[in-house]
Amino acid sequence: MSWGDLFDRAAEYDVTLDDVQTAVSRRRSGDGGDGDGATSGDAGDDEADDGGAES
């Protein structure tokens, strides 16, 4: 199935971005996810970095 077909089918539903964000948040909290962005074993540092494709 193509992306275009999927988008056409999805358009039948009246879903907002708020609906999506709420559903993701609910699922992750329900799964016991911490939702704080932590990844295991990461020391981290304070240096910001915003490099990327746009440069």
């Binding site: 962005g37 990844t39 990461d42 540092d45 304070d46 240096e47 910001a48």
Partner: peptide, 10 residues
């Protein structure tokens, strides 16, 4: 946020 970014920086 900075906290989330710190988790993967480095």
């Amino acid at each position: 946020s900075a906290a989330a970014g710190a988790a993967i920086r480095g």
